[in-house]
Design a protein around this nucleic acid. Structure first.
Lengths: 227, 227
DNA sequence: ACACTGACTGAACGTACGGTCAGCATGGAA
DNA sequence: TTCCATGCTGACCGTACGTTCAGTCAGTGT
């Protein structure tokens, strides 16, 4: 019965859950108020408007993620491992997964920070021999962060396909983490195929910088059967 | 002036664009009708309800993706390369990126097919020497498909971070494809770190199947500095 | 005793929504 | 010509939305 949180916090948490479930546009303020056990007028009293409530949610999530983030790069460069384990992780992560799509500036800043952190951590990992060196330090950090967040956003599909809930206990995410880590360790593509891709994009760049001179017939950049 | 499409197709295409931009819940039927140049009543006449219109969009996207999909596994296991190149790709891909989140069954089936295709293609690639073998053929196909779709869903962040529009011309996606392919070729994590992750999850499994016997102190599964 | 403040509510307002309906053209079949 | 089916519209309906407002109540300082 005793709910230690203030009414303002209860409203914000209720909004977080409902916005995460159905999206902001599909969630009436009345539903938020009902879930928090208050009147709709009190929601307006505390936040001023539905949009301001949404912004407050964005800021709360961003602040919490910032507070909880740790340098855990070993298991697949996962910037959210600490959050996953914490009690209030699931609703927060669900909300984050939703709002990664509708371009809230607070969330965009958060992603930028995650990328910067990932770059620092991977470069440190290169020093300690945990992480391989790369030709594209920043771009690799972007790619790894995007993949990590992308699997979070699509957690429903991951759950259906692998039976692994990425929003739950990190110790039970092996169904996803194991193959992902295998890919991130041993790779998928063989070296000659990679060189073909590199050459194809280099040719495209050359064609763009000097578009007048003729280029040899190469309309499909990835051939696939070359050995 | 001559628009060859029927009014029904114009409505469906307008809905596709608007739903992709702002989401279904935030798009009024009136806006769809206005974009298509018809009355709102005609939208209802053709589709019956907003929800049915949404379903029609889902089915149209699924059908188009199925029609366009090709076996292009060389450049990072991208199941949507053909679609990207085609003219009506962008709005379709934008819609797909949106609806991958709200669990439409047609889209879920589509994802399942993509995974199945990815598994077939990667296993064929192992035979021709383009793709490396794996301990988890199906799980690897899931992971690669999820990463590919995840980067599509987060294309806005990719664009901001790398200046590369994944929805546009595939020949100008090198900013993303090159580092992604490098990661998928040479890996990120070193072999000993991978073995640590494997051992940690194996220990967790053992603990779960025989939870009574004591296990050695290992509360954090990824240590990171072990060498 | 009074005044003031902030949390909080029930009722209401204006609006924009999804959906309905009667009816108007057009056109091929009878 | 009559008929009905189809594509289509403007006007309308009930509802649910975001927001406003007047006012209650408890606490606090004076």
């Amino acid at each position: 019965m005793a709910d230690e949180r203030t009414a303002r916090e209860r409203i914000r948490d209720a909004a977080l859950e409902l916005f995460a479930e159905a999206g902001v546009a599909a969630t009436p303020v009345r539903a938020v108020a009902a879930r928090a056990g208050v009147s709709t007028a009190l929601v307006m009293h505390h936040f001023g408007s539905k949009d301001a409530l949404r912004t407050a949610c964005d800021e709360h999530v961003a602040a919490t993620v910032r507070a909880r983030k740790t340098a855990s790069v070993g298991a697949g460069a996962d910037p959210l491992a600490a959050l996953r384990a914490s009690g209030d992780g699931p609703p927060l992560l669900r909300y984050l997964a939703r709002t990664l799509l509708d371009g809230a500036p607070q969330v965009a800043d958060l992603v930028d920070e995650m990328v910067a952190d990932a770059q620092v951590y991977t470069e440190a990992g290169v020093g300690t021999g945990v992480v391989r060196p790369t030709d594209f330090p920043r771009e690799r950090a972007v790619v790894l962060t995007i993949w990590s967040l992308g699997s979070l956003v699509l957690h429903e599909h991951v759950s259906r396909l692998l039976g692994t809930d990425l929003l739950g206990d990190p110790r039970s995410t092996g169904g996803y983490t194991l193959p992902a880590t295998e890919v991130l360790t041993r790779g998928v593509i063989t070296e000659p195929s990679y060189q073909q891709v590199r050459a194809a994009f280099a040719a495209l760049d050359a064609e763009r910088t000097a578009p007048d001179q003729e280029t040899p017939d190469q309309e499909t950049p990835h051939r696939g059967e070359g050995r």
